[in-house]
Every structure is written in structure tokens, then in C-alpha cells.
Amino acid sequence: MRNTNNELQRYTAAYFSNEDDLKGSTAEARLRGFTIHDVFSPFPVHGMDEAMGLKPSRITWAAFAGGLAGLVTAVVLQIWTSAYDWALNIGGKPFNTPLLFVPVSFELTVLFSGLTSVIVLFYLSGLNPFSKRKSLPGVNDDKFVLVLDHSGASFRKEAADEIFSKYNAEKVVEGDLV
């Protein structure tokens, strides 16, 4: 990763063997003013968001918006096609039969909402089939990694090491973020 000055950024990655150490070290590092680049784990660790100080995701709102769009699309499409664009006498029923439009409206609401939330997830997390992004070694197996960013003014190597050792870091790696 390059900063705005196009300089390579430095990082320190600490590997832990369990989620508790990761969570503790992350919380501690954040509270002590370190810039947490990211945390990597094989499974979602409970309380990690809080440890990292992440705000609740707004994807929920996107899902709601998507659902609303689906509902509106469905209702408008059904009423417009059935009662206005080409109204046909079907089984003697009135042209506009809102009750009979409920199932499709529901399904489209769900579909739009679900797809929107997934698309937003992919977009925000940079997930796409062409991504060449790799995981840190062992992250998808049994390793828990805390990556601290050097760029912030608050980075102090000794303090960091101290936190790492307090939480039984298995190894600490320093390098450039590419």
C-alpha cells in the first residue's frame, strides 16, 4: 500500500494462535493509540469489531433500500402492466387486484434486498473474481494476525512489542505494505 506521498508504508504483523489473544492485543493496541491496519482471522471473532473500534456496518441500510426498491418495482410493474399498459379481463376480476400482487411483491423485495446487500459487501470489501489479493499465511487455517500501521505518529515499536509479547504472539513480522 502506498500513501499519498507514494512512499511504501511499513507495517508490523503479529501472529497469534487464538482469538482471545488477538482480541486482547487489538483492543490494547487501539486503546494505546496504535493505528490498526487490519486484523485477520480464520473465522469471525466475537467482539473483534469493538476491539478494533469499528462502527456497526451500514450495509443494513443498503439492504433496506434495496428491499424498498424491489417492493416499489414490483408494485409499480404489476399494477402498471395489469391495469394500465394492457388491461385485460382475466376471469372477471378487476384490472387492479392488489391482493393478488402481494406474492410477487414480497419475492422481489427479498430478492432486491438480498442482492443489494451482497453487492455492497463485495464492493466495500473489494471482493471480486479478478482480485489477486492473498491471505497472510495461515490466516485461513488457524492463525490470528494483528497488523499495525507504522504510518501514524503513534507507532512505537517497543510498546508494540510489549503488547505482542503480553498476548503471546507467536511471531512478529515487519515489512512493507504492498
Binding site: D38, V39, F40, S41, P42, F43, P44, V45, M48, D49, M52, L54, P56, S57, I59, T60, A63, F106, V110, S113, G114, S117, V118, V120, L121, F122, L124, S125, G126, L127, N128, P129, S131, K132, R133, K134, S135, L136, V139, N140
Partner: peptide, 26 residues
């Protein structure tokens, strides 16, 4: 899709998983 186990992703992932579960239930 370039999954790297980032907690930021995990966080959103869990949200979306919850949304999908909530949608799939009805």
C-alpha cells in the same frame, strides 16, 4: 474473490449473513 480474512470484511460479512438469514427465513 480475494478473500483474506480481514476483520473489516468479516464484520460486513457477518452483517450480510445476518441480513440474508433474516431474508431467507420468511
Amino acid at each position: 474473490l480475494g478473500w483474506n480474512g480481514s476483520n473489516r470484511t468479516w464484520s460486513r460479512y457477518e452483517t450480510v449473513y445476518g441480513i440474508l438469514a433474516a431474508l431467507a427465513t420468511p
